[in-house]
């Protein structure tokens, strides 16, 4: 199978690697770059565990080929905190028990950040609606919704 060299920016750093044409962005992140915080939970772009940001907007990294991301600016969950200083949204998930097993959590946080970018202070209904692309089996979403509301508030306060 033919391989291609891809170069992109991931979490602020220029990275490159050899990939097959069919290599998905999520596999490039997980296997080539060993950024394993981005997870795979399905094969049909439904669960949202693989959500990352491309050029500041959320995308499901299982629905992009790595070669499509040539030259793009990717951010993953590993790039959200500043060193060990959690981002307000990460802190909100921790403070509000917005996670249990943690598997969906990176995708939830990346979706939440994009949500707040679009809707700076989302209502409960807006949060629930905008989580349509992310599944969680543990929390019943109750505390995820609370976390995102709290995270949005904290981000507004920080601005």
């Amino acid at each position: 199978m033919a391989t291609h060299k891809v170069t992109m920016k991931v979490n602020g750093k220029a990275v490159s690697g050899e990939v097959e044409s069919r290599t998905l962005l999520v596999h490039f992140l997980r296997e080539t770059l060993r950024l394993t915080g981005t997870h795979v939970g399905c094969d049909t772009s439904q669960c949202g565990a693989c959500t990352v940001h491309m050029n500041g907007e959320s995308v499901k990294s299982c629905s992009l080929f790595a070669v499509q991301c040539e030259g793009q600016d990717i951010q993953t969950i590993e790039g959200v905190a500043t060193g060990d200083q959690l981002h307000p949204m990460q802190q909100a998930f921790k403070d509000n028990h917005g996670l249990q097993c943690g598997y969906c959590t990176p995708g939830m946080i990346m979706t939440a950040l994009d949500m707040v970018r679009r809707i700076p202070s989302p209502s409960e209904q807006e949060i629930r609606k905008n989580l349509e692309g992310n599944m969680c089996r543990c929390t019943g979403y109750h505390n995820i919704v609370k976390s995102i509301a709290a995270g949005a508030k904290a981000m507004a306060g920080a601005r």
């Binding site: 997980r30 950024l35 394993t36 915080g37 981005t38 997870h39 795979v40 993953t76 969950i77 590993e78 959200v80 905190a81 959690l86 990460q90 802190q91 998930f93 921790k94 403070d95 028990h97 996670l99 943690g102 598997y103 959590t105 990176p106 946080i109």
Partner: peptide, 19 residues
């Protein structure tokens, strides 16, 4: 008490099997 496991999960540092 806030969970001590959460730091690694919210930062993508969990260690699941496929990792």
């Amino acid at each position: 008490v806030k969970r001590k496991e959460d730091f690694r999960f919210v930062t993508g540092r969990g260690n699941y099997l496929d990792d």
